[in-house]
């Protein structure tokens, strides 16, 4: 089933609510503040699978030309899939989850070459992956405790 666009909500949200940012754990209606809504084109490596009932999917292009696909249930974003020429601002994208990311990253040894190794983080409330190189990065993040019951995260193309 092709996903449907929710133009009304997207456009109204952009005008009314000011400077909030869509984040993991944030409100679905704020997603548009992260960038410009787009149809998910064939420009990505992986075609997006169909979305099960009760899960909403919005794809946007942000200021860094990063394509973000955000999955939400009951109005709250529980997973984000992204790809683009540079890295996203994790502080903005992860919101309240950012300290968990920072804690893991900053305890890793600072060794030459390590900064370009693929990232895999498995925390109780945050699973995050990133790979690629300058000009062609991709990654995903989700909160395992917020995934709707019965939904396989891998069915959304997101790495567990």
């Amino acid at each position: 089933m092709p996903y449907r666009y929710r133009w009304t909500v997207v456009l109204v949200g952009a005008i009314v609510t000011g400077t909030t940012h869509a984040t993991l754990g944030g409100l679905e209606r704020d997603v548009s503040h992260e960038g410009q809504p787009i149809a998910f084109a064939a420009a990505t490596v992986h075609p997006l699978p169909a979305v099960p009932q009760g899960v909403h999917q919005q794809t946007i292009l942000n200021l860094r030309s990063i394509t973000l696909t955000e999955y939400s249930a009951n109005g709250t974003v529980f997973a984000i899939l992204w790809s683009g020429p540079t890295m996203p601002d994790y502080r903005s994208l992860l919101g309240t989850y950012f300290p968990s990311y920072q804690q893991v990253i900053q305890t890793q040894p600072l060794s030459p070459g390590h900064y370009r190794a693929p990232v895999a983080i498995h925390q109780p409330n945050l699973v995050l992956h990133a790979s690629g190189h300058m000009g062609a990065y991709q990654g995903s993040m989700y909160d395992p405790s917020a995934v709707p019951t019965g939904l396989s995260i891998t069915s959304l193309g997101i790495e567990p």
Partner: peptide
Amino acid sequence: NSATAGSLD
């Protein structure tokens, strides 16, 4: 490397 990304670096 991540499995889902499908990437050999």
